[in-house]
Design a protein around this nucleic acid. Sequence first.
DNA 1: GTCTATAGGCCGATAGAC
DNA 2: GTCTATCGGCCTATAGAC
Lengths: 243, 243
Amino acid sequence: MARAASSDRMAAAPPPPEGTPEPPVGRKSSRSATPRTPRRARQVEAKRTAILDAALGLFSRLGLHGTTVEQIAEQAAVSKTNLFYYFASKEEVYVAVLRRLLDEWLAPLRALERDSDPARAIGEYIRRKIMFSRAHPEASRLFCLEIVRGAPLLRRELETSLKQLVDAKAEVIRAWSESGRLAPVDPRHLIFAIWATTQHYADFAAQIDALLETGLDDEAFAEEAVCNIQRIILDGLRVRSPD
Amino acid sequence: MARAASSDRMAAAPPPPEGTPEPPVGRKSSRSATPRTPRRARQVEAKRTAILDAALGLFSRLGLHGTTVEQIAEQAAVSKTNLFYYFASKEEVYVAVLRRLLDEWLAPLRALERDSDPARAIGEYIRRKIMFSRAHPEASRLFCLEIVRGAPLLRRELETSLKQLVDAKAEVIRAWSESGRLAPVDPRHLIFAIWATTQHYADFAAQIDALLETGLDDEAFAEEAVCNIQRIILDGLRVRSPD
DNA sequence: GTCTATAGGCCGATAGAC
DNA sequence: GTCTATCGGCCTATAGAC
């Protein structure tokens, strides 16, 4: 029933021109005896997922315009015609990929809680973000591409759900600063700094690889990145004068 | 053919076949009496520059594949045919744009000198980087796009001249840390952190605008960004225990 | 040098058989 | 649902007049 799920999400956030045109799922109740999740529906979902997975990899490297439908189809092991049976257009695939990732992308920020110890919570946030970049570098790059383009397809989500989340968490951080449990910073710039430093390891992986011949793939390097970013952001660089 | 050929080039080699193919300047020494910079050559240069300026704006928003030659020509106020008189292909324009920007992009890092006061030098570096992002957001975004794509056209430069520069400056930073004038950090991660935080304001401008309805265009916001990033990186967030 | 006209390829999307 | 075949449009790049 992924269909329904995605439709609901669409409703929550007005996407491209029109909503998701209902896919050609055979009327599901024609045979009254079939179970809730008919084999058919599951197969459909599996195929859609394969297509989205393939598309993510390609879009994240080549962009929307640099990727051809044929490449996606080949990567997903379906025919081009068949792909158009599941998705009405290339843009629809693109939007579906973005949507599928958005929640997961924001999960680490949601976890920032007022009651935690500030330094601990921020350190943990940094770790989670880097680990997400490590686990899903393609997702990070795809968002990067979309935003550099001016976020034509994501703008509304940014302005609504993301803004809401950021405002709430900025409030948490501001409270920490005001109660003296955290040094005074503008929470918004802090959030940007954390996003930037952590996502950098995925988005600029090619640069890091060219310079250091390593990257987040290497677990030791990832750990190094976490520690250094935590230290930089939490402790800073300035040497504390001995009293 | 155009597409296929371009794909081959892209995949095959970092810089295109030859360096900057000499523009169709009439042989400049044919008339021995003409000055060093003949009017012709200057006009040619002016037109090439107009094309590159237009291309930068478009490539940085739409990417190589999302931009059409006709858009570039229109923006530069030349005909499409005429553009092809000055540049052999769209890729050639793209590479020329990147090349033209590279030096300028790296200038702030070159300015990091061993003899400076570490905290001051780093603070100044942060300021310069943000001010560059402010003055040339399109350049920043174009580099971002190119690197996200895996830097097919810039890789060689990254591996040679950039690596050399980074190695040298990392050494400067390491010396600062070792002499106790700077807190201990891995210089490479520090450089990445500074790049990431500062370029973020240009590359993710659409996101910042969606969240805050402002951006580096606003001078006050730019100043705010500089101060906050300086504070975060130099002083950190952790509250210093009162002895 | 600059134009008009057009070649020629790639690609997104559809028709229609099975 | 999946295939083969193909259309029509867009886009890069060139030919050839002036």
